[in-house]
């Protein structure tokens, strides 16, 4: 039940919620790209501050955003550990037998973990403030040019929206099946990895069977409702870009420009400036 909140819409009427979904999608892409340009800790801090501001403006409780991290915490920790132990460097901070932790390793580990953290919180904010339908409509609209090369934009958009729609249903179903097997004495949290994976079969098989059954009925329901009747399908939602949307886009554009400029042109000047601001006084 806990990780059910991942990617779930959090209803509110903040201006972030009301932004054009296309704008939000573009901003999310900019944000993700920007993160991969960041090296310096001070810029990380700036990105974090920027992120916090956006979260505050969205009126989604910070706890709800952090919860999305919980479901991928394992991944973050793994990244941290891999970098920590596997990246070699000159300055050894700690060693035991063949295990060595170097300053470079620690630096990498912290940065990679933090990068992942920013990535998850940022992108989850997109799904928390945008309904799946808006999201798919937005994507469909952004991908429209691809129709020229016969790319099935509409089908892809529908597949995504249906996938999103069925996530909670399948989650619920998973819990039910797990409970049923637990009641028959199954245990899912003991033994080594192989044993645990094997223990999941009694859950996965019924889950697949059920997913296929659901898909079959859904297909009947969609056919009955004339799916694919005409190429001139009505698009109910019409997007209109307004001044706020443009302003937000410009802010994000400025944001990534600054980060790139900082890295390649100014050679980390921002670090220097911020460093100066903090420590000169």
């Amino acid at each position: 039940m806990n990780n059910i909140s991942f990617g779930q819409y959090y209803p509110s009427n903040s201006f972030i919620h009301r932004l054009d979904p296309r704008v939000k999608l573009i901003c999310a892409v900019i944000y993700v790209a920007a993160i991969f340009f960041v090296d310096s800790y001070f810029v990380y801090a700036a990105v974090l501050l920027f992120g916090i501001t956006v979260i505050a403006l969205s009126r989604v409780p910070i706890g709800t955003v952090l919860k999305t991290v919980k479901s991928v915490l394992f991944l973050i920790l793994l990244t941290f550990a891999l970098n920590l132990f596997l990246v070699s460097g000159d300055k050894v901070l700690w060693s035991w037998k063949f295990i060595k932790i170097t300053a470079t390793g620690l630096d990498y580990a912290v940065r990679m973990a933090f990068r992942l953290f920013l990535l998850i919180t940022g992108t989850s904010l997109l799904t928390l403030t945008t309904t799946p339908m808006e999201l798919t409509d937005g994507l469909e609209s952004l991908m429209t040019p691809l129709k020229a090369v016969r790319f099935p934009v509409r089908d892809i958009a529908l597949i995504m929206s249906i996938a999103l729609r069925f996530i909670p249903t399948l989650m619920e179903e998973t819990t039910k099946i797990m409970n049923a097997q637990k009641a028959r004495g199954a245990s899912f949290d003991t033994g080594n990895l192989l044993k645990r994976v094997k223990a999941l079969l009694p859950v996965l098989i019924p889950l697949f069977v059920s997913a296929f059954r659901r898909a079959e009925e859904l297909a009947l329901a969609m056919d009955s409702r004339c799916y694919d009747a005409t190429p001139n399908r009505t698009r109910r939602r019409q997007f209109k870009i307004n001044m706020v949307d443009i302003a937000v886009l410009l802010i994000f554009a400025a944001f990534i420009t600054l980060i790139i400029l900082d890295k390649y042109l100014w050679g980390g000047a921002m670090d220097g400036i911020i460093y100066g601001l903090i420590f000169k006084k």
């Binding site: 039910k176 099946i177 409970n179 049923a180 009641a183 004495g185 009694p202 098989i205 019924p206």
Partner: peptide, 21 residues
Amino acid sequence: DLRRLRGKVGMVFQYPEYQLF
């Protein structure tokens, strides 16, 4: 002792056929 308890109390859920595997 979950093992003992679940041997004592048997639970048949709704639509139990969906748990066959």
